[in-house]
Design a protein around this nucleic acid. Sequence first.
DNA 1: CTCCACTTTTCTGTATACATAATACATAGA
DNA 2: TCTATGTATTATGTATACAGAAAAGTGGAG
Lengths: 232, 232
Amino acid sequence: MGEQFQIDMNEFLPLRDVVFNTLRKAILTGQLKPGERLMEVHLANQLGVSRTPIREAIRKLELEGLVIMIPRRGAEVARITEKSLKDVLEVRRALDALSVELACDRITEEDTERLLTACHEFEQATKGKDAAVIAKADVALHDIIVEATGNQRLMQMVNNLSEQMYRYRFVYIKEESRHDNLIAEHREIYESIARRDKARAAKAAKLHIDNQEKSIIRQIRLENESRLNKRL
Amino acid sequence: MGEQFQIDMNEFLPLRDVVFNTLRKAILTGQLKPGERLMEVHLANQLGVSRTPIREAIRKLELEGLVIMIPRRGAEVARITEKSLKDVLEVRRALDALSVELACDRITEEDTERLLTACHEFEQATKGKDAAVIAKADVALHDIIVEATGNQRLMQMVNNLSEQMYRYRFVYIKEESRHDNLIAEHREIYESIARRDKARAAKAAKLHIDNQEKSIIRQIRLENESRLNKRL
DNA sequence: CTCCACTTTTCTGTATACATAATACATAGA
DNA sequence: TCTATGTATTATGTATACAGAAAAGTGGAG
């Protein structure tokens, strides 16, 4: 029983939400692996709560696509296939393009400044070697953009889609040879938003996703190969 | 206690899913009105089940955005504001455009035929006066397009977004003066997909949404006015 | 040794019980 | 009459109990 989840008990949310956040984080960080079963009593004991909040949390994870339900057998962590990831990225490409276009129309001067700062901070972060720091700077930058759209629903959907690939967020961050490209891509997005050039911004955002897709797909294929080799 | 939901008990799904579908339909058709509280014991009695499946269904409705949770007070049907609807449509415009673009690349000859047939059937439907029949034909047509993309995630997200405005689906269907326009818009979408003309298809899809938005926003303003008048 | 039937265990699905927060109500005081 | 405080009610949050379906284990026959 080595696995022990980090529970944010300091929150004073309903237990189901604490459980929901805990399980989600465990799935996204890979603590709970694809295909792994989520057994209610086991989780209940581990988290020190009853089955009820566990079940309610699982219902939400189910709708979020992070677990799949098998009738009379329970929940298991959703497996990521190359197809499902391409599907996600295909949608995300469209929504990221929409985000930057809307940002062109609606971003304030102040947030444009913040965006520039975020670009610089990302650049700084790449000079250190801490992938977590780089990833955080990357997220911060993209958050500024979607928030600038003022579209609540869009924010929620983009976040959810990002989540689906969270397990791979380090993949393209770690490739140091790509760092200069990432910086340039961010810069291009910033520039086009600052100049309110929607077409250019959309193009840049799509390119940004395309490049991430390449890294991640490459990684998935590597994982699959090594998995197949182990089976032999 | 006039309200009595239509329960599809013939299904042999888990009760929570039966309840989920039942409540969702009740919300989408307006049987459960925005702002109305969903009280667990009440619903449990009404549907003849215990509170457990009710609660689990509510968790899913919560994540789907159809109900909102107030801590220690329970769930209520989400209110639709003009802003929230504009947000939804803004995203939907982008995803519908994506759908037709992908359809241009991926639709089979067979499905292109079906799409044409669906156009004709929609046209036929408008000649009768049954709004439900027209709405059904409209849904069928759009389903062919998103399914042609082969993108599971996209299908799910478009369906979810459609749901959010389901309460208003009759609004633009009912305006008979718009029927010829709707037919023409569908025709234009069909033509551009058949000719694999992505740019034209995207433009047509966006226009289609723009026109729906106008109808619905007009309707919402009417409702708000009459609501305000009643308060006086 | 293998396969099949049967028993046992395990886990989900559902119902119910209990505790507590929130609200409504009523009563007393100013 | 209005406000405030205490009480009663109501509904949620959580835990637990019970029934039944799968899965796993067991034993016997071939």
